[in-house]
Every structure is written in structure tokens, then in C-alpha cells.
Simulated assay, not measured.
Amino acid sequence: MHYSVIYQIRRIYYPALAAVGVLVNLVAIVILSRGKCGLSKCISRYLVGMAVTDLLVVTTDVILRGFGPIYFPPSFLDITPVCSFIIFLSAATAVVSVWFTVAFTFDRFVAICCEKLKTKYCTEKMAVVVQGTVSLLGTSVSVPWYFVYEPQYIIGNVPWYCEIKSSFRTSSVWFSFDMFHLILTPFIPFFLILLLNVLTVRRILVASRVRKGLRGSSNGENHKDPEMENRKKSIILLFSISGSFILLWMTQVVFYIYVRIAGTRYYSSNTDPVYITEHTSKILQLLSSCTNTCIYVLTQSKFREELKNAVKYPINLVAKLVKL
């Protein structure tokens, strides 16, 4: 049987992404939860929440929906109620994951640009409230996805596979829901993150010029500014996370805009450019669930130290057992 290039890529990509995604997100959760990375409790809470949702995205979208149907067809996962529930979980985890990134970006925006609000908003307690609210709302608005699909076959009174209901394409109610979900994720988050980063950069540049002017330098000597150094570390972390999100989601945002303008709903074949673009955008989008841990390693020296200690621990334990 002849398979398209994109299908063959998916057969290799999804298992590899699942293995890496589960490992790096579990490592991030354990290390960040210990609170020894030199980050505030508020930031740590957001980063742990993002790692948890990324792990859920890998579990639902990569494992259950990605390579599960490719390597194990048909299976229990293909029974219509199970299939519909997995699609609902996939949609919910994607919404929550994206909006956690928005919440973290907004928290850093407040910390840098809103001095009066900073002490009340940028706290661990508020981070828990925000994440709980986002999780509840993100899950609630995704519930209708469970009812979008119907059985493709019924064999022995058991409904198999998930096929989109014909009413989904003709009903104005379903059309409104589909548009609402597209606007909710990824359009609003995409542009909110862009806007907040632009405003944050603007604020940083202004504050930096003011502080340099006030501090000055006597006899041409340079003095380190501890506040600016701490702010610089926070900004590098923020821009790395939000920049990665924007780059990896950009293809999907552009694809969604094109599909809506062109009114494309069907593919002529698996070599159709639209088909290839859709799956390529999905591949890039799912990659965003694995990049944050790499960002922590590259930007946070204390995270690197904790990671080294975590790697050394089992090695030292085995060495001790061998000596015994």
C-alpha cells in the first residue's frame, strides 16, 4: 500500500514526540515543584501548570489521537463514545494549555508594567485562582465537541469510529460554535500574546532609559543594576516561551484564515497542498507542548543545576549499590 510522505512522517514523528514530550514535561513538573530554581512562587506555579497541561496535550492529542489510530487500528479507542470523549479531551487540553500561556504572559506584563497592581495580582494564590478558572472555563466550552460526531459504522450494536454529523456543516448553531472555538483558540491568544509582549518591550525600553539616566555612572564607571538584572532574566524567560508559542502556532493560524476565506472543506487527495499544510501545521503546533523544558534549560542556570542533580542521582545510587 502506498502512503503519502506526510503520513510516513507522522508515523515516525508522533511516537518520537510522545516519548520526548512525556519525559521532558515530567522532568519539568518535578524540578519546578521543588521550588529550587530561583523563581518566585508565582512564576513557578504558572510554569508547573503549563507543564501539566502540555503533558495532557501529549497524552490526548499525540498518543491517543496521533499514533494510537495509526499503529493500533481498530481498537477500543475507535468506539464512538470513546473516540468522541478523546476528541473532547483533546480540545479542552489545547484550550487550557494555550490560555495558561496567555495567563503567564499577562502575569509578567502586570509585574513589569503595573507597579500598583503587581503586589496584589502577582502572587501564588492568584496564580492558583487564575489557573483553576481557566481550567474550568476551557473544559466547559469544549464539552460540545463530544456531540459533534456520530458513528461511521454499527457492528453488532457497537458504534465504531467518529464521523462529523451532517448538521455540523449546515446548522447555524454549530457554525457559530465552530467560529467561537476558532476565535477562542488560537486567534485571541495569538494576538493577545503579541500585544502584551509589544507593550512589555515598550515599557522595558522606557524604564531602562530612565533608570540609566537616574543612576548615571561616575567617572565613566559602570555599575550593575540588580533590579534590571532580575528583570532581564524574567524577560528572557517570558519572551522565549511566548516567542516559541507564536512561531509554532503561526502556521496553523494562517491556515485557519486561508481555509475560512477560501471555503475549503475537502481534499482532492493526500498529496493536496491543503492536506499537507493542515497536517504540517498540526505537527508544529504539537511541538509546542515539548519546547518549554528546553527553554528552561537554555535560560535558567538553576534549572540546569537541578536537572544535573536529577541525572546524577540514579547514577550515584547505582554506584552505591554496586559498592555494597
Rank of each mutant, 00 (worst) to 15 (best):
A92S: 15
F67L: 09
C113L: 06
N222E: 08
V82T: 12
I246Q: 10
I183R: 04
L117W: 15
V322L: 07
L192F: 14
P74M: 06
M50N: 07
L196M: 15
N316Y: 12
V27L: 15
I315A: 10
N309A: 12
K212M: 04
T119S: 15
V57R: 02
T80M: 14
V128R: 05
T123M: 09
I236K: 12
F190E: 06
Y146K: 02
F76C: 07
I295M: 03
S268R: 07
P69K: 12
S4K: 04
I193L: 09
V259R: 10
E227K: 05
G156W: 08
Q285D: 01
N25E: 07
R65A: 13
I236Y: 11
L287A: 13
F76G: 03
E227T: 08
L32Y: 06
Q152P: 00
G138E: 00
K233I: 01
S33A: 15
M250H: 11
D272Q: 07
F168C: 11
Y258R: 09
A16E: 02
V206N: 03
L324W: 09
L77M: 14
E124M: 11
L195Y: 14
L47T: 04
L55N: 05
A51N: 05
I261L: 15
I112W: 05
T80Y: 11
S288C: 12
H2N: 10
T60E: 06
I193D: 01
S140E: 01
I261G: 05
L284D: 01
P226A: 09
F100Q: 06
Y153G: 01
L136P: 00
S140M: 14
P314R: 06
S234Y: 00
W174R: 03
F177D: 04
C114W: 12
I295A: 06
G66A: 07
A319T: 09
N292R: 06
M250F: 15
N157L: 08
E150T: 09
G263F: 13
I276N: 08
F175E: 15
M228K: 02
R11V: 12
I204E: 12
L324H: 10
V134G: 00
V129C: 03
Y256V: 03
F190D: 07
E227M: 05
S33F: 11
T105Q: 11
Y313M: 11
I86C: 12
T53V: 06
S218Y: 04
F168D: 03
Q300C: 12
V5Q: 03
